[in-house]
Amino acid sequence: MCDVCGCGDPAKVTIDVHRSLLEDNDHEAAHLRDHFARHGVTVLNLMGSPGSGKTALLEATAAALPGRRLAAVSGDLATDLDAERLRRAGIVSRSITTGSACHLDAKMVHRALHLPDLAAAVDRADFFFIENVGNLVCPAIYDLGQQANVVVLSVTEGVDKPLKYPVMFERADLVVLSKIDLLPYLGDISLSTLRENVARIRPNLPLIATSARTSEGIQDWLAWLAQQHATSPTGSTVPSAHAHHTH
């Protein structure tokens, strides 16, 4: 009892919540996934360090697939440079400028899909690539409504990266090893050690070794893409909830 005004001691009340901190993001991602499925778009989330070659991989993809309809968003803290490169390569592309944020979340992708030119292109696209902010840590935990996660890892980053950034590799569906044309200049980088380190984090995680510059391995990447497209979910799991919501 308070001896100033006579009020009682505060009572403790507990509320059991048990809800994920990612609940809002996951809800938004589910909405996006449903939208992509309804339009038959195969959506891939490309993650990797700054400079790992995510944009170069997409440029090589566009060059090798002239008949395919490709769309992309590029997440960057600043500038439109990656999206510009992709547009020059023939991919309908816009930037998501994140300011200080180190990752994309589902809400940012959704907002980008309301940009008129991108919205129409994504709905007609065979593939929609979400090029995440260059970072091997933060992007891994956010579901963006993608069908698969692709981690682009360049040989110049060293063989230890899967061990040092396990969460990223645990959540990958494919590792694209990039810049293998540089291997002759990197005496201490062993492809077999790199494969072993990937397998230590996630056994049986597929790895495709590529060079965007020489096109080595690009056909294997295209075959993987075709397989993803063939197994894309189609139709809607939420028949009418967002039927009015067209992009």
């Binding site: 009682g8 505060p10 009572a11 403790k12 009340v13 507990t14 509320i15 919540v17 809800r19 935990i141």
Partner: peptide
Amino acid sequence: RDLILERIELEVPDV
């Protein structure tokens, strides 16, 4: 991989 808000504890003034 949990990232869960389990519980909130509040003080309710007993007036």
